[in-house]
Amino acid sequence: MSHEPAAPNAVAAHAGHDAHPHVNYFAIFIALCVCTGISILLDLFESQSLRWVIVFLVISVAVAKAMFVLTYFMHLKFEGNWKFIILLPTTILAIGLMVALTPDIALHYYTPDVPQVHQEAPAAPAPAADHGHGH
């Protein structure tokens, strides 16, 4: 489907060295600003039960912004299929790296034995005390 808008430009791309598809860049800029505003608003929204929903939304907004930049500012919408050849391997490797890192640190398949954790454990009300200092 991305071929359809690209088709007329593809012709131009061959005619001139550097084709300039017409994009309303200002509209994209406004969209990016709105997205930033949304993520800041989400930060102000405090809800214990909806926390993970908000986290998901914040990340979704970031991904949406990234897509705006990639698609329009970086012209990926108007590029040929080579974009997949270049971006797919890096994406797979990047995700693979995260997956590879996870068991090392995030998964505790042994009893954590680090001083910080020891300190945390007996001081269950400690975070509450921290609250007081923070404000």
Partner: peptide, 19 residues
């Protein structure tokens, strides 16, 4: 693009996870 991800990860999400 990098900042677009750094901003929520460093500035916004820690505050949300604080709860």
């Amino acid at each position: 693009l990098v900042w677009i991800f750094l901003f929520p990860l460093l500035y916004i999400l820690p505050g949300l996870m604080r709860a």
